[in-house]
Amino acid sequence: MALKLADYKTEVHNDWCPGCGDFGIVNALQMALAEMGIERDKATIFSGIGCSGKTSHFINTYGVHTLHGRVLTFAQGGKLANPEMTVVAVGGDGDGLGIGAGHFVAAGRRNIDMTYIIFDNGVYGLTKGQASPTLRLGEKTKSLPSPNTNYNVNPIGLAVASGFTFVARGYSYDVRHLKDLIIKAVRHKGLSFLDVLQPCPTYNDINTRDWYAGVDLAQESMERHSRIYKLEDMHFDPMVHYDDESEVNEKLSQALIKSLEWGQKIPIGVFYQNEIISQYSARLTDRIPNYLENPPAKQKISENGLPVTDVSEILDSLRI
C-alpha cells in the first residue's frame, strides 16, 4: 500500500511557538519521506536537545531523541548497526555547532551514508534565546543584555572543511525547495549536511521572516528584494566530476567562498557534492568482508531473555 504524507505524522501535541520555522522543516522532511516512499519502519529520525529536538516525536518512523550535542554519535551508531536504515539526524545550531562541534568534525571525516540537518536560528531557542554559535559578532537578539561577544561559526564552511561530501543550505519557509534538497541529501551516497535557515520569531528579532524576505531592502528600493537566492538559478555547479586534486580543490574553494556571502544576498541550494570519496561502509567492508550481509542489527544477542554471549570460557582461562 502506497504511503501518504499523513502516514508520516504522529498525534503528539506540538508546543512550538506559532510561526516557528521548525514547522516548515518538519513538513519538508515528512514530504520528502513520503515522496521517496521510504517504509516507516526502515527510517530513523535521531534528534538532539532543543526546540528542534522534538522533531523525532512528530514523525511516524523510528525516533530517537538523544542528548544535547550528541545526536550524530547516536545516529552514526544506528546507521552502522543497521546499514539498511535511512538515517536522518536533526538538531539545533547550538546542539551541533556548540557542544556538539567535535562530533560534527569527526562525522565529516567518517562519511557515513546518512543526512544531518541543522535548524539554524541563531539562538538557543529552548533555553530562552541565548546567542548560538551562528549568531554574528556584535549582534544583539532579544534576550541578550548586550551584543554578542563571539565570532560566528560558518556551518557550510566547517562542513566542507571537515569532509562532509554533500553540503547544502535551505530555508524553512521555502518548504518545496527544502523538500527537494532533503531528497537530494538522502539520496546522496555519503554524509550529507543541510544548514536550514530557521527564523525563531520568539527570540531572534534580527533574522526574521521579513528580514530574509528583504522587506527592509524593499522599503529603500520600493521593489521586492528577497535576500535569499538559489545557487541553481545562478548555474552554480557544486559537483566534483572527476577524481582529480585540482577539480576537488576548485569545488571546495568555491563552496567556501559562497558560504561567506551574507547580508544583502544569501545563497541557498547545494554548495558542494563529492561522491568519489569512499563511504565509511566501504572502508569497513575492506576489513570485515561480510559487514553488509551480517551487520550488528542482524546478529542474535539474546535467547529466552538471556544474552547469548558466553564469556565464561574466557574468564575460566584467566582464573588463577
Partner: peptide, 15 residues
Amino acid sequence: SRLGLDNGIFWNTGD
C-alpha cells in the same frame, strides 16, 4: 524491538 524491525516502531527520549 530494535531499529528496522518490521512494525516495531518506537521512540526514545531522555525525558
